[in-house]
């Protein structure tokens, strides 16, 4: 693990510590792959959450294009399910930040703290596009 990855994990853990009721935090690429996550989330569940969160963000983008101001801009997606909440915001280029929290969590605080983190370090939370013609067999 590179030192920047360790710093990112630490910042994600820190986000959970200062935000009551939060359980997991994950940075994912827009095509649905995990980039970094907090220790409480197993790798398998991080993979699952990355795929789910990218799908939700992409559908939300579709809602914005169809029913928003036409720019396709997206602030955050929030899902309230039995037993928890899921928040997703755009991070740096090509990446999203997702947080899972308990159902009694305060959505305003979570959204605020997530956006604050993105403002601070969004430029490091990126997943650049693949090079054109780049084969995965390297």
């Amino acid at each position: 693990m590179r030192s920047s990855d360790q710093e990112l994990s630490w910042l994600l853990e820190n986000l959970l510590q200062r935000t009551p009721q939060t359980r997991y935090a994950l940075v994912l690429s827009r095509d649905g792959l995990r980039l970094s996550h907090t220790a409480g989330l197993s790798v398998d569940r991080a993979d699952q959450l990355a795929a789910i969160a990218s799908g939700i963000q992409s559908l939300s983008y579709g809602a914005s294009v169809e029913f928003g101001d036409g720019t396709g801009g997206l602030r955050q997606s929030m899902t309230e399910f039995h037993g928890g909440l899921l928040f997703i915001v755009e991070a740096g280029e090509g990446a999203h930040l997702a947080v899972v929290a308990g159902e009694d969590a305060d959505p305003g605080v979570i959204g605020h703290n997530m956006n604050e983190l993105v403002e601070q370090i969004g430029e490091y939370l990126t997943a650049p596009p693949r090079e054109p013609q780049q084969s995965s067999r390297l």
């Binding site: 690429s29 827009r30 095509d31 649905g32 792959l33 995990r34 980039l35 795929a51 990218s54 799908g55 939700i56 992409s58 559908l59 983008y61 579709g62 169809e66 090509g94 990446a95 997943a127 650049p128 596009p129 693949r130 054109p132 013609q133 780049q134 084969s135 995965s136 067999r137 390297l138």
Partner: peptide, 29 residues
């Protein structure tokens, strides 16, 4: 409605584009 997203470098080694190297986006929903 399209949920195509740019394929990122995170997918190298996961999303095998062999044979379709020019592919640059993928459906996520």
């Amino acid at each position: 409605l399209s949920t195509e997203e740019t394929m990122t470098r995170a997918g190298i080694g996961v999303d095998d584009a062999q044979g379709v190297e020019a592919k640059s986006t993928t459906t996520v929903a």
